[in-house]
């Protein structure tokens, strides 16, 4: 009989299976942009940190009230920078993902995207609270590694409900997070690597694999729609 119909049946089955269990409209471009924001934030933090006088050379008694004030301000500013980076990244991701969902005729708010958000959000919020606790106890050196580890675990958890490739990004972040625990004081560099460079690399890979408008050789398997 007609072969074409069977092929179409198989394609329909594949499309429905992935559509009903995975949210495929995640934008690769937003990953690249989030990476760029992270690098800018890290650069800003780096300059702010290299501005402070070296306390190690001074006896503790000489540290003035002004030093304390500026240290307090610094922590405040860095936390604010982190929050702004996070907000702008989420906004960019949300806007680009909505645009892509519209293009692919996928509803942005469906049972699948809800599941994705819950599975991504729970470990991430846990990590966020844990980082606040670390700051509370002045264990600043472990904040950057903890952010990387929890973010990586969130991605691993979310990878079952969206484009599967993000599990590698998650794994990479967990690994450098663990490595960073052994290099306290260099947290910012690991943070820039994980949130900046890795995002840009994976965003580019995802963009080429799934978003590219022109049909390439990888388009056939990548773009299910």
């Amino acid at each position: 009989m007609d072969n074409k119909n069977y092929l179409k049946d198989i394609n329909d089955i594949k499309t429905m299976m992935s559509r009903s269990s995975r949210f495929m409209s995640l934008s690769g471009l937003s990953g690249v942009l989030a990476g760029i924001y992270a690098l800018i934030a890290a650069l800003y933090a780096h300059f702010r940190l290299s501005d402070i006088p070296d306390y190690a050379d001074k006896p503790a008694i000489v540290a003035t009230f002004g030093d304390f004030v500026s240290a307090y301000r610094l922590v405040n500013d860095l936390v604010l920078t982190a929050c702004i980076t996070l907000t702008v990244s989420i906004l960019t991701g949300a806007i680009l993902t909505m645009r892509k969902a519209k293009k692919q005729n996928e509803k942005i708010w469906n049972p699948v995207s809800k599941r994705l958000l819950v599975n991504f959000g729970l470990p991430l919020i846990t990590g966020g609270i844990f980082c606040i606790v670390l700051i509370q106890y002045h264990i600043i050196g472990l904040v950057a590694p903890a952010m990387l580890i929890f973010y990586g675990l969130s991605l691993l958890n979310a990878s079952k409900f969206t484009i599967g490739d993000i599990k590698y990004l998650g794994l990479a972040n967990v690994i450098i997070g663990l490595v960073a625990t052994q290099f306290v004081g260099y947290g910012l560099y690991f943070w820039a690597l994980g949130f900046g460079v890795f995002h840009i690399i994976y965003g580019t890979i995802l963009y080429n694999k799934y978003d590219r408008p022109s049909p390439g050789p990888s388009q056939k398997e990548g773009n299910i729609n």
Partner: peptide, 18 residues
């Protein structure tokens, strides 16, 4: 029918609206 079965194969359940 093909669609219904495909969806149910990869989800624990699906409701009418889904």
């Amino acid at each position: 029918r093909l669609g219904i079965m495909s969806i149910l194969m990869v989800n624990d359940f699906a409701d009418f609206n889904m």
